[in-house]
Nucleic acid binder design. Structure first.
Lengths: 345, 345
DNA sequence: TCACCGATGTAAACCGGTTTCCAAGTTCAA
DNA sequence: TTGAACTTGGAAACCGGTTTACATCGGTGA
């Protein structure tokens, strides 16, 4: 039996050199065996593979990445606790794989980590980035990604090197407001999504839609989560000004669910007393006990188009910037209804 | 102005060699500047940093990983679309960071990808693994992780090298069944979680609890998602055998939510006609329109203990295997009630 | 018999960092 | 004044692969 180098450290992983020595060939040849290049004969190939198997050899990823010209890695930033992001990542994975790319997830927890997450992905030499709902200012974003091909998903942002795939948020918001106005609502509040860029966009769209209907906008400071939605309701009902709001259009479904929660706890009927509309058409929204009126952004389609865009960049098929805007679809469910009377009136 | 090497390829990222050349020092010294070792003087340090800044230098992660003895990387496997996993990953990140570790997310989509996800993390030379709810058989798992320190979260599994942090699932299930029995239920069905290991455990616990109460177990084939829960209800009500079930204890909250959904669509009152209990105490469960009776597994505590366990392994503080079992907490909400009369009886 | 060719394999450079070892210069105490 | 110790920095080995240039060899056609 050929000696396997020292064999002293039971802990050290075998390297390509160990395999080469055990098989009695050079390490260059072993590399060719695994990368399917011309050179090794059939006999050698099977012998090397057998030895590698016996030794439990697996190539060192870092070394491979360092030595190879291309990494075939796709970086995807996401917020792990955001189900929308998670679903998108799930959808992206198999598509990227079909194109021969592995994906690396960069988890951004909170705002400051967004920068770090992107930098980490670039440091791993990802060939392209898929940025799911980044919240940074465009200029900062541009500075960080430099000339790495990127596609931004879900947010309107003007970066020379980055494509954009998103749903037409403005139209989605307008559709919601039109729907509520058609139901007779006049005092329609918007529960916003905080300081992010998408939140700002939807807020502006809300203001525009209200103005178009000659109605006065009421923006409630909110956030991205159920807690934010619930808290906003507490704030709203605390003020006397809030009591005559008959409908709330929220930043996303999560907020809307929080709003429904808070209203239910107070015994306020939806949609009898207040109508509520969300945004995303998440799984939660479809639930029979919730049946939230919301806007579908067709995330599967977004995932597909995002990968396609990035692949075109990598193939060199296309160099000019592209923005793909998908039409949203208003999904009317149970939580919106014709404006009604207040309890006790 | 010092020349910056060739300057021809505007695209190539500057390397440590470029910085060294531009600053007029050796690359070894540049490395020391960034890694805070003894050697460089204050003047040199600031000069090198200035040059690096100007050039936009960032170290190549692969090269660093390859050259360094330690990677200070923690691999975390997760299913991106699973909110429970996402929340756990979110909780793990800051704790790991406090210990000086970065985390790499390995996304496993479906069963076969679980192996690939773990292998990828090992190939990245993660020093330790946090496996969130792995579904593989223990023997396979052992073969893949080899002697990489690992902690399994949420699942009872007996691997010599791997610690386990989990909630006492058996007790959680027993608590649920005891609770339902105390409410007078006798025909209590279990909607199981499919083929995974955790599902098997909870299924067995359910059978044991029923047997203890001298009741006959009824296991409905389910799965992990809302759809599975809803489908199980359809199946159940299709059979005449199903109609006398008065309570359903599900594998997790997601199924339970699906069950509630399906029941609501059929106009079956919960908890008037059927009681439903979940498992996880997820955000969904707490919602005012749902108020699901469920079991809390204190995921924040699990995250903390998981990192602690893995750090002890890495520090060499502890070598023997440890299994930490957290007590579950039954959370009684609205969806379970004293057994009632059927509609129309 | 000779020049040439394809198949197979080796040696060495290289990817971009880190780390060890050593040299040169400075400072300081004896 | 000398030499020990400390500071600062450079040269080179190394991490584990990939890739290029080249060597070797049996076979082949002229």
């Amino acid at each position: 039996m050929p000696s396997e180098t020292a064999g002293s450290a039971a802990t050290r992983r075998p390297t390509i050199q160990d395999v080469a020595a055990a098989a009695g060939v050079s390490k260059g040849l072993v590399s060719k065996v695994f990368n399917g290049g011309a050179g090794p004969s059939a006999a050698t190939t099977s012998r090397v593979i057998a030895v590698a198997d016996r030794l439990g050899y697996r190539p060192n990823r870092s070394a491979t990445l360092l030595a190879k010209r291309r990494t075939r890695l796709l970086g995807v930033t996401m917020l792990p606790s955001n189900l929308f992001h998670g679903e998108l990542a799930d959808l992206i994975q198999p598509i990227a794989e079909k194109h021969g790319y592995d994906i690396v997830l960069g988890s951004m927890t909170g705002y400051s980590h967004e920068r770090r997450a992107i930098e980490t992905l670039i440091d791993f030499r990802c060939e392209a980035l898929v940025l799911v709902g980044p919240t940074m200012p465009a200029a900062q974003l541009a500075a960080i990604i430099g000339n790495v091909p990127a596609v931004v998903v879900g947010r309107k942002v003007d970066l020379p090197g980055a494509d954009v795939v998103r749903c037409d948020d403005e139209r989605g918001v307008h559709d919601v407001i039109d729907h509520l106005v058609a139901l007779g609502h006049r005092r329609i509040a918007h529960l916003d999504g905080g300081s992010g860029a998408i939140a700002a966009l939807r807020r502006r769209a809300y203001r525009a839609a209200m103005t178009r209907h000659r109605l006065e906008p009421v923006v409630l400071p909110g956030g991205m989560t159920e807690e934010d939605g619930a808290r906003a309701v507490t704030d709203l009902l605390g003020h006397s000004a809030g009591v005559d709001v008959t409908a709330v259009a929220t930043y996303n479904d999560r907020c809307a669910v929080g709003v429904l929660d808070a209203l239910a706890r107070r015994g306020i009927d939806v949609p009898g007393e207040i109508s509520v509309a969300g945004f995303d058409d998440s799984l939660q929204a479809r639930h029979a006990l919730i049946e939230l009126t919301t806007v579908d952004q067709s995330s599967a389609e977004q995932a597909r188009l995002a990968i396609q865009a990035v692949m075109e960049r990598l193939d060199g098929t296309r160099a000019e910037r592209r923005e793909i805007v998908l039409p949203p679809a208003l999904i009317v469910r149970r939580t919106t209804a014709r404006v009604g009377r207040r309890r006790g009136e």
